[in-house]
Simulated scan of single mutants.
Amino acid sequence: MSMKYQSEWHSGLLPPSFTDNTSHFSQIITPAVLAYAAGDAFGVQFEFAPRRQQIIHVLEEKEGWPLGGVSDDTLLSLLTIDSLHETNPTKAAERFLVSLRRDAPKLRGLGPTTRTALGMAVKENERGTIGNTNGAMMRTALSGLAFSPSSARLRRQWIAESARITHSHVTAISCAVLMAAAFSEATESSSLSSEGILEAMNKEISANNTIPLNIVQAIKRCDQWTPPAEGTSLDPLETLLAVLWSTLGAKDCADAFSRACALGGDTDTVAALSGSLFCAWNPTNHGLFSIQWLPQVAWSEITYVKQAIELIIKTREIHE
């Protein structure tokens, strides 16, 4: 662990007990997980608002939402990480679904596919998206950190099975697998750079013949992607492209959050994934712990993020 990282971590912004700092994977995994929760909490206040030119970096109250509170994005991601306790992908997916049903009453902002899986009401205008939203990618991405690049086949099976338990569409599953691959490759210290994110996705595409052609082509042309005027939708491919746009063009984690939120639409999901991915690929210069509003995130709501980080590290070391 670098001295810079140690200084940031012990600066008092966050509880140092959130993770076991003795692991050499901690420098990558810890900020990635914490940035996910922070981006989620920050992005909630801009969700489904119009696109904007400038984002002011403060956490503000949102009606019906606690200041700094995270959404279902973080909570479902932590439940998915918890499923890593199981010994195979099928058992893990089943464990997630049991946990989802147990915790559903306290989850804020559940999407239409997840609500359908729980037998909850879905709005008429949401029915067409059921099974093909960004929820699978959103909640399985961080689990990619638990697998080394050399365990790509196991990671692919694990992420696909977990995604499929709620999302049936090939696009939703494929985007989940690709995003998890990008996080997984970040655990290889020899290849850390923002440009490596696209290399990681293309590596997965080369090894995985189930990725649809339209997704392959979209990633190859991602530098030509134009953000939609109406904001980022729940469409998984559109969300993936928004995350790439926000991450690859960012100078630090705060900038990744800003770019994601300026897009409008599903800002909490895009900010969570973008900031987290930036931190994973830039473990020594991400700037996460310099964000002044970071202590305002409702960390007390998710104290078990410590166990989640430690489980990812433990699982990742097994797959070394």
Rank of each mutant, 00 (worst) to 15 (best):
S2C: 10
L14Y: 06
F18V: 12
F18D: 06
F18A: 03
T19W: 09
T19C: 12
D20H: 06
A32K: 05
A32R: 06
A35T: 01
A37Q: 11
G39K: 05
A41M: 07
F42A: 07
F42T: 03
F42R: 08
V44N: 07
F48L: 15
A49W: 08
R52N: 04
Q54E: 13
H57C: 01
L59Y: 03
L59P: 04
L59V: 00
E60K: 15
E60V: 10
E61Q: 13
K62L: 12
K62F: 06
G64D: 07
G64V: 00
P66R: 05
G69T: 05
V70I: 12
S71N: 08
D72L: 03
D73V: 02
T74W: 13
S77R: 09
I81C: 03
I81R: 08
E86L: 08
E86G: 00
T87M: 06
P89D: 06
K91L: 14
A93M: 04
E94F: 00
E94R: 08
R95S: 11
V98L: 13
L100M: 09
D103W: 08
K106W: 00
L107T: 07
R108A: 13
G109H: 12
T114I: 14
R115P: 05
R115K: 15
L118E: 13
A121W: 01
K123S: 07
E126D: 12
G128I: 13
I130G: 01
N132W: 04
M138G: 04
A141K: 05
A141H: 03
S143V: 08
G144F: 13
F147A: 04
P149L: 03
P149G: 05
S150T: 10
S151T: 06
A152I: 03
R153P: 01
R153T: 09
R155I: 00
R155G: 10
S162E: 11
S162V: 00
R164E: 15
I165H: 05
T166S: 10
H167P: 03
H169V: 02
V170M: 12
A172Y: 01
A172R: 06
I173R: 03
A176T: 02
V177M: 12
M179Y: 06
E185H: 13
A186Y: 04
S190M: 12
S193Q: 10
I197T: 07
I197Q: 15
E199T: 13
E199Y: 08
K203T: 10
S206H: 09
T210H: 14
N214C: 07
V216P: 00
V216Q: 13
A218T: 08
K220E: 14
K220D: 14
R221T: 12
D223H: 11
T226G: 03
P227A: 08
P227T: 12
P228I: 02
D235P: 04
D235E: 09
V243S: 13
L244M: 15
T247V: 14
A254S: 14
D255P: 11
D255K: 11
R259W: 03
A260W: 08
D266W: 11
D266H: 09
D266M: 06
T267H: 02
T269C: 07
T269L: 04
A272C: 10
L273T: 00
S274F: 01
G275P: 05
N282T: 07
P283C: 00
P283H: 00
P283T: 02
N285F: 10
H286W: 12
L288R: 00
F289D: 02
F289Q: 04
P295C: 01
Q296D: 07
Q296H: 01
W299G: 04
E301G: 12
I302K: 09
E310Q: 12
E317N: 15
I318A: 11
